[in-house]
Design a protein around this nucleic acid. Structure first.
Lengths: 192, 192, 192, 192
DNA sequence: GATGAATGAGGATTCATTCAT
DNA sequence: CATGAATGAATCCTCATTCAT
């Protein structure tokens, strides 16, 4: 437990510093200070800065997937499912701006490129994420436009990421009504 | 002419390296090597790395605005204008992947945040970019949904940026038909 | 203990190199080499070159003040006190030529000017150094000429500094008799 | 004449910048800018920065010697001659603070050490400067204390340099009465 | 002679990582 | 496991000097 405590505290510190200052604005020594541990201690838990970042990413992603799947059912209509997923995701990032900022940094960096490349190259048999399943079904049911998956992803996540960024920076204020209208607009983009 | 030659060659080298490796993956020494000049030479033309980056950004933006406004007229219908601007922008980035990658790095960095903040804080009287004018008119004419400008921007640029990123990384292949269908989908997202 | 060892060793190296070659003839890398440590190590103990220099100065000054006040008493006659202070100071520098050379560099640089300015501008209530007290009392008792403090300082320290410089460079050889005669000559300059 | 113009203008610029900022605060490019000439031009007139500095020093020294010898006669009594030389020198530096600051930088640097060493090692037959002649005669006539030349130099120039420094930095204000009293005090230090 | 763009060695500083305690 | 002092490669930038025009 003590072990896990330190580990968690280090990840929190890294999350905060990287989200606020970027990878290069978060030296290991600063992460250690913020976490209240010695520099060397980080290396007891993570083999390198790269791996610390990668693990942090995996954890945040895991959390996101959990949130997305909470109360989610494949039985409901495509549109409803899309709106549910989008809304939940949007709310999650609004509530956890540091998570969003970190993920943004991550994807917009060699890490992210590698990740996407791995995803792109994976076996078709590999597990799909809920959005991918949704898009494929949506096209099969002819409810959604016929596009390659990355295009659908772009139409669905692109606006979301852009909007959250503006929100996090304080350029827009998003209330519930706006969130609903916004996700419906995203749906308008992909629906047939 | 010679003067401008070196300057241009340095900017090209910086563009390439920053686009491919990010700001921190493009040391001045590497830029100099790539440009085939001495390290000090860069400082004859740009006072600092920051200013080199800033000038590069301004140049690329200027070029983009030129391209956007070429053959653009305020007289045409909103939808047509939106499709024109989107298509031109999309094509421009597809043809100049390095420009896109650079702009992406730029916006996703303290530089970009500053820039957006300045734009956000500016006087309402200041000049609007063509997209902003378009959005405002679209709302006035009740052709487009009623949203704050940042939301429209998110719905319009978000997918575009996301798609170009995937294209640049080789995850999608965009032909003309796809481009048309894609930009129309973006329009579907913002049209009333 | 180990900690203090390195710190001391670094300061000694800096003292030697700066005394011999000036601030600009003592790069951090050379100081590190001389001290037998890595370059980065210096920055574990001193935040910057400036601060290393400043701390070195403060340490040397502290040592000098200690030496000056050892066996010094305000009760003795002005002349005797002056001769005591001058002699002790002269001997100290002769025994520690590096200290002298460093102090000289320091005072003849922006550091020194700042220092003198601070001293000049300080509150009259602030603590005076032993020489200043001596000069003021000397004038009150009408044993010394009536001059502003800086003039007395010039008459007292000017020759001393000039002589030590020549001694350090090997241009004069100072034996005990000469030291006595010299300090008495300085007294002749300021006595009434 | 044009030739000489540039040369002079460069030396003036170097004098000003070095006096104000030290050798390392006066890059060749800055000297060129201040002088209103191209960087390369300096090298048409001076083979290197070192030589520019050395020539500047020689010129200033020449000027000083001229001023010292103006109206100076070996026939007058020692004391009068000393007071004349000291006063003239003091006034010269007060009127030309940049000259003083430059000379100070020069002497307090490897240049100065070299110079003094050369002077020290020179043939006894070589020409003596007026002060040296004066000191030797003063000792012969038993008007002055019996000291090696460097000690007399220290007693005579040390206070002067220290005082001018304080004056230049604005720490003392020297009027005519003070100058007289001060040089007499210097004489008190060396007279028998 | 005059120019100033070009050069690259050199200097201060940062930071991921190691290792002795 | 935890620590944090030590390390040195890597980075940005400066500046004396050269040389083609």
């Amino acid at each position: 437990m003590k072990n896990n405590d330190k580990r968690t505290v280090i990840m929190q510190a890294a999350l905060k510093l990287i989200a606020e200052n970027g990878f290069h604005g978060a030296p290991m020594s600063m992460i250690a200070d913020t976490a209240g541990v010695g520099t060397g201690t980080i290396y007891c838990h993570f083999k390198s800065k790269d791996l610390l970042i990668k693990e942090l990413f995996l954890e945040l992603r895991k959390k996101i997937i959990e949130v997305l799947l909470e109360g989610y059912s494949d039985d409901k209509p495509i549109r409803e499912r899309f709106l549910h997923l989008s809304t939940v995701l949007l709310r999650h990032f609004i509530e956890h701006p540091l998570h969003f900022r970190f993920m943004e940094q991550y994807f917009n960096s060699p890490y992210g490129v590698t990740l996407r490349r791995e995803k792109f190259l994976r076996e078709p048999s590999a597990e799909l994420d809920p959005f991918e399943v949704l898009f494929l079904q949506g096209m099969t049911q002819q409810v959604m436009k016929d596009f390659p998956l990355p295009v659908h992803a772009a139409l669905a996540f692109g606006p979301l990421a852009a909007l959250v960024r503006d929100h996090v920076l304080g350029f827009v204020k998003l209330d519930d009504a706006m969130i609903v209208k916004f996700t419906e607009s995203c749906w308008d983009g992909i629906k047939r």
